[in-house]
């Protein structure tokens, strides 16, 4: 079958095409970028190995696993708390690399790993009106005093389960939904952003390195 080139398709390939859309505002209120370079995996601590897992992740990635809905990141690798003893690990630019295999090796016996690279549509959102757009679907409070850089939440937008994280103070938000629901999420997002005008930025456009998560984890057990 050598004649068949294996063409990967991103979840929003036909929908999130670069350009300027919605109201013709002076400046787009929202910038949208589909991130297609993230290798993803669910990491679930094996029973009784929680402390060893913390140590192993620290040793392998220099990251303290967050115990709460926060993301901790270093050098393009991040671990987001998505449940009790459960994380979503992400690595930038490593979709076609062996990030998940190496994760399995490094955490063998300490965590159950399931690859999710293909399971999620990933959007990065920023712009002056990003919070106003998100308020049309995200039921949780995204006010800076309540949801800050490094915070993660799993919630629902327009009946679609999503994971949202604030990546930096600009602010940039990362919004993720299951791949099969990408078109429905897009329908909500594009309609919600239209009144402010929005621009779809090509994936991996200049400046994305600064999108990296810059803070380390904030524990909910801060007492």
């Amino acid at each position: 079958m050598a004649d068949l080139a294996l063409q990967a398709r991103t979840p929003l390939q036909d929908l999130a095409r670069p350009g300027r859309f919605g109201a013709a505002t002076a400046k787009p209120g929202l910038l949208i970028e589909e991130r297609t370079d993230l290798a993803l995996a669910t990491v679930m601590a094996r029973r009784g190995r929680e402390h060893d897992l913390n140590r192993a992740v620290a040793a392998a990635y220099g990251i303290d696993l967050p115990h709460g809905p926060h993301v901790a990141a270093k050098d393009g690798v991040s671990f987001a708390g998505i449940g009790v003893q459960r994380w979503l690990a992400a690595a930038e630019g490593l979709v076609e690399a062996d990030f998940v295999d190496r994760l399995r090796q490094r955490l063998a016996g300490l965590a159950s790993i399931a690859e999710q690279t293909d399971g999620w549509a990933v959007l990065r959102l920023r712009g002056d009106r990003v919070r106003d757009v998100l308020a049309k679907g995200i039921p949780i409070d995204l006010h800076p005093s309540r949801f800050a850089t490094g915070d993660v939440a799993l919630t629902v937008v327009a009946h679609i389960g999503v994971q949202i994280a604030q990546l930096d103070d600009r602010p940039t938000f990362q919004l993720m939904a299951f791949r099969s629901l990408a078109a429905s999420l897009w329908s909500w997002l594009s309609k919600s952003a239209a009144e402010f005008g929005y621009e779809i930025v090509p994936s991996g456009s200049p400046g994305r390195r600064t999108d990296r998560i810059t803070t380390t984890k904030r524990s909910i057990n801060s007492d």
Partner: peptide, 14 residues
């Protein structure tokens, strides 16, 4: 809850 078992949906991955 004493069992060592972890589960996650991979419906969307495949």
């Amino acid at each position: 809850s004493d069992l060592d078992v972890q589960m996650v949906s991979v419906s969307e991955q495949w």
